[in-house]
Simulated scan of single mutants.
Amino acid sequence: MTEATPSLFDSYTLGKITLSNRVVMAPLTRNRAGAGFVPGDLAVEYYAQRASAGLIITEATQISQQGQGYQDTPGIYSEAQVAGWKKITEAVHAKGGRIVAQLWHVGRVSHTSLQPNGGAPVAPSAITAKTKTFVNNSFAETSAPRALELSEIPGLIEDYRRAAANAIKAGFDGVEIHGANGYLIDQFLRDGANKRTDAYGGSIENRARLLIEVMAAVIAEIGAARTGLRLSPVTPANDLSDSNPQVLFNHVVDELEKLHPVYIHVVEGATGGPRDVAPDFSFEELHRRYSGTWIVNNGYDLDLAQTVIAAGKADLIAFGKPFISNPDLVERFKRAAPLNELDRDTLYGGGAKGYIDYPALEPVG
Rank of each mutant, 00 (worst) to 15 (best):
S110A: 15
G228K: 09
E341H: 12
E45P: 00
P363K: 13
P124D: 07
A352C: 07
A51L: 06
T58F: 06
V277P: 00
I204E: 05
G354C: 11
F172Y: 14
W85V: 11
H251W: 15
I153H: 03
W85R: 04
P74L: 07
S78Q: 12
H105W: 04
L42K: 06
A170G: 11
L211P: 00
G292A: 03
S110R: 02
G171N: 10
A26L: 04
R30A: 14
A199Q: 14
L184Q: 06
G96N: 12
A305Q: 02
V330M: 08
Y77A: 14
S203F: 12
L361A: 05
L150R: 11
Y46V: 00
P327T: 08
N194V: 01
R226G: 09
A311K: 00
A337W: 03
A336F: 04
W294D: 01
H93E: 09
R275I: 00
L55Q: 10
I356M: 07
T293G: 06
K334M: 12
A26C: 09
G118T: 07
G15A: 12
F139E: 14
S20N: 14
G202P: 01
G292N: 01
Q187H: 08
A352K: 15
V82W: 05
N244S: 15
E79C: 02
Q306G: 08
W104H: 15
K16H: 15
G118F: 07
L150N: 14
G97A: 12
P261F: 06
A94V: 04
A48L: 04
D343S: 13
D239W: 04
N298W: 04
H178P: 09
R162W: 09
Q68W: 01
P233F: 05
T18I: 11
R275V: 08
A180H: 06
P121E: 03
E257Y: 00
P121A: 08
G350S: 15
P154H: 09
V100W: 08
T131L: 06
Y348V: 05
S110N: 03
S7C: 09
Q81W: 07
K95R: 15
L342G: 07
R230T: 02
D186P: 10
E205W: 01
Q102H: 14
G97M: 11
G273Y: 07
D242A: 14
G54Y: 08
L19G: 11
G202S: 04
T227C: 12
L329R: 06
S241Y: 13
P74I: 08
F172Q: 04
D303Y: 01
A43L: 13
T346E: 13
D328E: 11
T235F: 02
A48V: 04
E3Q: 15
V330P: 00
G118Y: 08
L329V: 12
D345N: 11
K86F: 01
R332I: 10
G40M: 05
T58N: 12
A314V: 00
F37E: 14
L304K: 14
V218R: 10
T271C: 10
L42E: 14
L148K: 00
A164D: 10
S7V: 05
V109M: 04
D345Y: 06
R146D: 03
